[in-house]
Amino acid sequence: MNSEEIIEKLKSAKGDKLKDTEVTLGDAIVHLEPGSLHEVAEFLKSDPDLHFDYLSCISGVDYLDLEREPRFECVYELHSMDKNHSIRLRVGVPEEEPSVPTVKDLWPAAIYPEREIYDMFGLTIEGHDEQKRLLMPEEWEGHPLRRDYDLTREKVAFSHNLDFKEELVKEKVPTRYKPNQV
């Protein structure tokens, strides 16, 4: 099925749950609210014509600098192994209620990307019982991939500003690690 047919089928079955649909550059894209994500995902997986049985990845995007509402977006990329088509679900997550329902009951592989989204963006995943950091150390504070998190706290020291090295290192990044403590 090509992208237009997929969108048509989805709209005819679950049209009221979708916020928006589009076919851009050949990709089928569906915009959703967090509340309707699980129902639409279940339909996509179980319907025999669509049969999206493969979760490719879950990405998070922070639209703070583009000043778009809602601020965060969770993007689910799904493939179908036997029908050879794909769909992209974009779930807008507002800043006031940063939480998304889990899809790990449909695709067990979702546990890792969801933990990463919690770690990097701070969005809580409802129903995911192992909500802990994945890539950063346990005691790290802050969510690195948010746009208001600094990339680095330290400027590069060259020979012309070597005397001011102490001023350049503003504040050591808090790692909460001391070698003896481990």
Binding site: S56, C57, S59, V61, D62, E77, A109, Y112, P113
Partner: peptide, 12 residues
């Protein structure tokens, strides 16, 4: 790029 995310096969 505004956001660049790698879908890593080993991660999944």
């Amino acid at each position: 790029p505004y956001r660049m995310k790698l879908r890593a096969p080993s991660f999944m």
